[in-house]
Design a protein around this nucleic acid. Structure first.
Lengths: 218, 218
DNA sequence: TACCGTTAGTTCAAAGTTTCACACACATCG
DNA sequence: CGATGTGTGTGAAACTTTGAACTAACGGTA
């Protein structure tokens, strides 16, 4: 453990941003120390899991004391690269895309949507939530100029693969895909799917077939 | 296997809506039969996993032939309760909430947003995407009258727990939570989290720390 | 009708993840 | 300054999920 090069389990990596956010809350409410049990209550993750997650990064806490909020926070800030800003592009300014542009969900974070793309000439050239909307034709040009490596995909499903193929000519390494389409990508590109209809349907399925079980993540 | 009462693994259950959607696509494109390998290519799930997933429901396919699309489709329709409509309420008509109301992501499905709630008097009484917006004060009343058991939560984080507590007095059994808040709920209520900021951050983390690994779900 | 190629269903081992439970270290208090 | 309680870090066990490999059944073809 405690070695930077040791690979962190994926399940752990997915929880890190969650921990980070709650630590920020604790910090701003003036808390000095926190135990894995308290944290567990707040983020709804088993306390043993939290301790193990933290332990992958070394001994961050003190026995009989807990974790120092400031120390933990500054550690995570470094680990999650919170100091350096990751620029993100949003492709497809429809209902959902517009909501993301207006939504402040990356305000406090290390990620920022710096440009958006759409085919609608009525939207091109405008600012939505302070983000400039460019023509889809200029996609590769702007992505390369701004050296963008992460995109949010909120285009209609039919064109998702088409757009994705064009991303092959850019520096894009990660796609957050809100499209129902399952994308074919070069293996140098990482895709995370958020499929809203599937999420809703599977929730309904769980309710009908697994009555009364406890909470599950996404 | 093949027994209706056998509990399906959660990982499998999450994939069912995905399978269902692709089967619908195949059906409408006139395809008669499909193999697990073809399906695997389309949904990006290992073919052995697909075969095992299906086998929990019994022998749905034929060796040396594959699966009959019609048969499979009608089977899933029953299994996923596609015939009966699940009414869903949306709470919080902000940027994201409005997008969902306008978005057609449940048009083809067994779920439909039938009412929405907000505190803004300017929104109350209006129709957004054909869905009536009611006052937050009348939340319990409408939910009970319409016998709604699933809600989508798109309110500001600060009030998420407050609203959730009020759901305790209703028939609501499932919450799709788009709020960063981790909700305290009675264990009869199931919560699925979709935390957009966390998703984006964890994608960025993966890109920095796990270069060049393959695709991961949600 | 007999063969051949295809592909479902299943078994097994491996990998990944969570949870338990406990020793040990530290903080705290008298 | 010693005793006591608290809470971390972690070994081991339990559980979940995946992927590879195999078997056996079926369809198609000559």
């Amino acid at each position: 453990m405690s070695n930077e090069t040791t690979k962190i389990p994926q399940a752990t990596a997915k929880r890190l941003p969650l921990y980070y956010r709650f630590l920020k809350n604790l910090h701003s409410s003036g808390k000095q120390r926190v135990s894995s049990a308290e944290l567990s209550e707040a983020v709804k993750v088993d306390s043993a899991t939290i301790r193990r997650d933290f332990s992958y990064f070394g001994a961050l806490g003190k026995k009989g004391y807990g974790y120092n909020v400031n120390y933990l926070l500054s550690f995570f800030r470094k680990t999650l690269d919170q100091d350096e800003l990751t620029k993100v592009a949003l492709i497809g300014v429809g209902n959902l895309g517009t909501a993301f542009l207006n939504y402040n969900f990356m305000k406090n974070n290390n990620t920022k949507i710096t440009c958006a793309f759409d085919v609608d000439p009525g939207k091109v050239g405008t600012l939505i939530g302070d983000v400039p909307v460019f023509a889809m034709d200029d996609l590769e040009k702007h992505l390369n100029e701004e050296e963008i490596s992460v995109v949010i995909l909120t285009v209609p499903a039919q064109v998702a693969q088409l757009i994705t193929d064009r991303l092959g000519n850019t520096n894009v390494k990660g796609i957050l895909n809100f499209t129902p389409a399952r994308l074919n990508v070069a293996k140098s590109i990482r895709v995370h799917h958020i499929d809203l209809a599937v999420e809703l349907q599977s929730l309904v399925y769980f309710l009908k077939h697994y009555p009364n079980v406890d909470e599950t993540e996404e």
